[in-house]
């Protein structure tokens, strides 16, 4: 079980959190102007990387804040956590 460093609360057990899929997918500002393919790209297509991945997490049983996490899916190492809207500290 991970130990996650919530950017608002500090280190907490993974059981307090829920995962929310890939991070940095911005909802299109003008969806009506997109083709079916472009909209489908936003709606359905997600990466599933073996290695370093950018993810959204929610401190659901805590401060309820969403934040981002850089995690290596091959060994579950969490390289960074950062607030929504912030640039990832790692490329």
């Amino acid at each position: 079980m991970f130990l996650i460093n919530c950017p608002y609360c500090g280190e907490r057990d993974q059981s307090e959190f829920s995962a929310g899929g890939e991070a940095h997918i911005i909802r299109p500002k003008q969806p009506t102007e997109l083709s079916d393919d472009q909209w489908a790209e936003y709606l359905f297509m997600r990466k599933n990387i073996k290695g370093v991945q950018f993810e959204r997490w929610n401190h659901a049983h805590g401060c309820r804040k969403w934040f981002n996490m850089v995690r290596d899916t091959s060994n579950d190492k969490i390289h960074a956590v950062y607030k929504m809207g912030e640039k990832p500290p790692i490329k």
């Binding site: 929310g20 911005i26 929610n58 659901a60 309820r64 804040k65 969403w66 929504m84 809207g85």
Partner: peptide, 12 residues
């Protein structure tokens, strides 16, 4: 949860 998600991430 869903409403909070949109508020925090898409429409802050």
């Amino acid at each position: 949860s869903k409403l909070e998600d949109y508020l925090q991430t898409e429409w802050p």
